[in-house]
Design a protein around this nucleic acid. Sequence first.
DNA 1: CTGATATCATTTGCATACGAATGAATTTGA
DNA 2: TCAAATTCATTCGTATGCAAATGATATCAG
Lengths: 158, 158
Amino acid sequence: MGRPEMSGEDNLLRLVEAEDGDENNYHLQDQVGFILRKAHQRHVAIFASQIGDLTPPQFAALAKLHDIGETSQNQLGTLIAMDAATVKGVIDRLKARGLVEVSKHEVDKRRLLVNLTPEGRAAIERLIPLARTITEETLAPLTAKEAATFLRLLAKLA
Amino acid sequence: MGRPEMSGEDNLLRLVEAEDGDENNYHLQDQVGFILRKAHQRHVAIFASQIGDLTPPQFAALAKLHDIGETSQNQLGTLIAMDAATVKGVIDRLKARGLVEVSKHEVDKRRLLVNLTPEGRAAIERLIPLARTITEETLAPLTAKEAATFLRLLAKLA
DNA sequence: CTGATATCATTTGCATACGAATGAATTTGA
DNA sequence: TCAAATTCATTCGTATGCAAATGATATCAG
């Protein structure tokens, strides 16, 4: 401390002057939300460098359809964590590219069934190995042990 | 676990040695990108529940301006991890609400200087305590020790 | 059976997010 | 010095992402 007779008022003053002693300052770069946003940005950039013609949400939709087969647009949205408005846009674009096809549910006329086309199936099967590379590259700054810890904790937050 | 000595390496090996048809066991919900996206979504929802009238990017811009004072729009974008097009939109909306003001750089006429208005300063100083609550709530599923580990590893990825 | 409620999909509006192209201003380097 | 390269800001186009409102259909409760 520079001044031995430092008082509460001096601390307030120091805060207002904000020249030194900034332990009470708010630092954006230490906030979990900000770092989470940046980590996500970096991942999306890595994804784009490996899979240029598909976005992560589009990939997620195809991968889930490949995993579970035909399902309703609404159910698909739940499974890949997208609200109804978002999933509609994603499916519309995949449909326009011939990677998925939609049909009406025979019994429940509210539902729109979505399924992979043969082209969509071929595409996702070709891309899954690249997805593993993307995961590896995203986690590359961590050791194997750190990566395992990170994934475990991240899953608790998601 | 079936095997007591089962390790992460064994799981990786099993994945690589996958038998025919094991291509099926690609699980989206285990991919770091997908979990990262969900964790980010959850944080944004928590943010919105605490700070309804400002988005995380808008908050980031105000917090950074509060931290460093007047700066150029471009430099601000670098500091809060937004590209030029994105930061322009954020600043435009903050300007429209009277929270920031812009002016031309006297020497370098390319630059647009951005600064907090008194209203913007009051707003960010009022909101910073809420931001700490948001961070706490986001990390609530983790113990204090886990949270520290998580932030350390997340920072290495960002 | 039927009115109330719930579910599914769509649409609109707003806010990031980023690539690419453009124009203005500055800096560099031969 | 001056042409080339770089930097800063803007604009356009595309793609999430979510809230709110709407319409169609299905289910539930009395």
